[in-house]
């Protein structure tokens, strides 16, 4: 079968977490984007969006990293990342650069063309069926920043609905925060874990094989506790599910 003609040039933002911890998720993201007809490029100068420092109050340091991000990505047609949280950070750049209107304007323009994977596929490309097959019962975790800052709720579900063999199970706590919150997870580990357990108490009782989400950071938190609690539920990124055949 001939490959479809590239419909969009995409600059891939692997995210630092994806690059260093979950390269499989990033590979799957590339696969999915290419199946959707995109020409994907990875600029190796990329590092991080600056969110860890920003959320910790270290805005000077966040600006240094965010500036680098701008330099790397601002000439791209579209930037896509397998994360809602990192993309939401782009929308915080104007707040971060409030004292430098010219940089804030550049940042706003970049934010406008930076997308979380599922919303890029569904909203920008109009692609809903990637020809995936995945035989499992999947519970969905609505990652906070994607859900509340980017409005990503239906897009992943639309994509999952087209996956053959997949049964989507809606959890009561699907919109409850997993308790990660960046440095919050290590500064207030007991509170973070209490939030996490509230969610996992349902997950571990639910008839699911896989817990999936659009963010590696949530999945890292969820997986870490599921493993510690000896659960059989696996965690997977949406991209990995969509790349399955």
């Amino acid at each position: 079968m001939p490959a479809p003609r590239p419909s969009r040039d995409v600059a891939l933002f692997a995210t630092c977490l994806g690059d260093q911890l979950f390269p499989g998720v990033v590979e799957a993201t590339v696969t999915v984007l290419e199946r959707a007809g995109c020409a994907v490029r990875f600029d190796p100068r990329q590092t991080c969006c600056g969110q860890p420092a920003f959320n910790s109050g270290y805005w000077r340091e966040a600006r240094q990293v965010a500036r680098h991000f701008l330099d790397v990505f601002e000439r791209a047609d579209a930037v896509v990342a397998p994360s809602g949280s990192c993309v939401a950070m782009l929308h915080r750049f104007p707040q971060l650069f409030a004292d430098e209107p010219d940089v804030a304007a550049r940042a706003a323009a970049l934010a406008h063309k930076t997308f979380e994977l599922s919303s890029f596929l569904v909203r920008e490309l109009g692609v809903t069926d990637l020809g995936a097959r995945f035989d499992a019962r999947v519970g969905w975790h609505d990652a906070c920043h994607g859900l509340r800052e980017l409005g990503v709720r239906d897009e992943p579900r639309t994509l999952l609905a087209a996956v053959q063999g997949l049964e989507l199970v809606e959890l009561r706590t699907r919109e409850s925060c997993c308790g990660f919150g960046g440095t919050f997870s290590v500064k207030l580990p007991e509170v973070s874990t209490a939030m996490l357990d509230h969610k996992l108490d349902e997950v571990m009782e639910a008839p699911i094989d896989v817990l999936a989400a659009i963010d590696g950071s949530c999945l890292m938190q969820l997986h870490g506790r599921l493993e510690r609690r000896g659960a059989r539920v696996r965690t997977m990124h949406l991209a990995e599910v969509l790349a399955s055949r």
Partner: peptide, 29 residues
């Protein structure tokens, strides 16, 4: 300390053997 705090209730994530970028030095995919 951050690692210890994380590990107090959660399994620590492992860095991948090779980062994603190791397979993408050419700038293409």
């Amino acid at each position: 300390p951050p690692m210890r705090a994380w590990a107090s209730s959660r399994a620590l994530p492992r860095l991948a053997k090779r980062p994603f970028r190791a397979g993408h030095k050419d700038g293409g995919s």
